[in-house]
Design a protein around this nucleic acid. Structure first.
Length: 289
DNA sequence: CCATGCGCTGAC
DNA sequence: GTCAGCGCATGG
């Protein structure tokens, strides 16, 4: 908050719901925008997590996992063709991919795959839009939310607020599958669901990554307006998550959706605890500024 | 080849 | 603010 105080997100939301209008610590007034769109203080989340994990589990190096960047060393703008310059960026070619990962590469993008900067893609790094995000390999499809192959697995997902059944709790979230929508009329998206989703194609790719335990890269977009964990602008790489389970459920629009629960891989949580968080929706390791 | 897709833009 | 509708990349 402007006064510099931080609160647990759940507590803050409860406070606002009860009619709180000032900081519980210093009574400074809370701006309206902060009331309706509180944002997570990622630096504080990282610090608290770091402090909590006293012993370093083998295979997880916190110094790497929490290597945040502050938008310096930004790459060039996404490449656009001459034709796209006339027609607008929506019609642009995606441009050069700067990293050397294969499209079906699972897991982080390391320094050895980043000949341009030799540092890899860092957790917390962000880009202007999906085309630029694609150029750095974090999430390659520039429209689709799920990257993957139905017989191999899913490499990454994007949280962009495109499906209202999504639920973002920071270190874990529920992600709705693709499909179920009428895209006739040359549409790329459609807010209305008109038939059931199935575990096929990209949804099936997620299910395979779940079964195999593959790491999934996660990016969050500013277009997700309901989440306090979404960036205020651009597209941000939020690191590696793993899939706890996939199932079908009734969506809010009256048709079935393929739901997936992902959790932050650096949490090292036993599956039971994630389930507990899903059902109890207790306090999370969530702080805001 | 054809179908899908959680973007993006200018126009209103 | 809302909206239609486009190229492109990818999977199948």
């Amino acid at each position: 908050m402007p006064c510099g105080h931080n609160f647990c997100l759940k507590c803050f939301e409860k406070w606002i719901k009860q009619g709180g209008h000032s900081c519980a610590k210093c009574r400074a007034s809370i701006p309206p925008k902060m009331k309706c769109q509180p944002r997570i203080n990622l630096a504080l989340v990282a610090a608290v997590r770091m402090a909590r994990s006293k012993s370093t589990p083998s295979g997880a190096d916190p110094s790497k996992a929490y290597n945040f960047v502050h938008n310096q060393n930004r790459p060039d703008k996404a490449y656009t063709t001459e034709r796209a310059k006339k027609a607008g960026k929506a019609n642009a070619a995606s441009g050069k991919i700067f990293v050397t990962i294969a499209p079906d590469h699972f897991g982080p993008i390391l320094a050895e795959n980043d000949p341009v900067r030799n540092q890899g893609v860092l957790v917390g790094e962000s880009w202007e839009d999906r085309l630029e995000c694609r150029q750095w390999g974090a999430h390659l499809p520039h429209v689709a939310g799920i990257a993957g192959q139905s017989e191999y697995g899913s490499q990454s997902v994007a949280l962009s607020g495109g499906y209202e059944d999504d639920e973002d709790h920071g270190e874990w979230f529920l992600y709705t599958g693709s499909g179920g929508r009428d895209l006739s009329g040359n549409k790329r998206t459609n807010k209305e669901q008109s038939f059931d989703q199935k575990f096929e194609k990209l949804n099936e790719a997620l299910r395979i990554s779940c079964k195999k335990g593959y790491p999934v890269r996660v990016v969050r977009s500013h277009k997700e307006k309901r989440s306090s964990y979404a960036p205020e602008s651009g597209v941000r790489y939020d690191g590696i998550y793993r899939i706890e389970r996939c199932w079908r459920k009734a969506g809010t629009q009256g048709f079935k959706v393929c739901d997936t629960c992902l959790f932050d891989a650096t949490m090292n949580l036993p599956h039971g605890l994630v389930k507990h968080m899903v059902t109890a929706q207790g306090h999370c390791l969530s702080y805001r500024s």
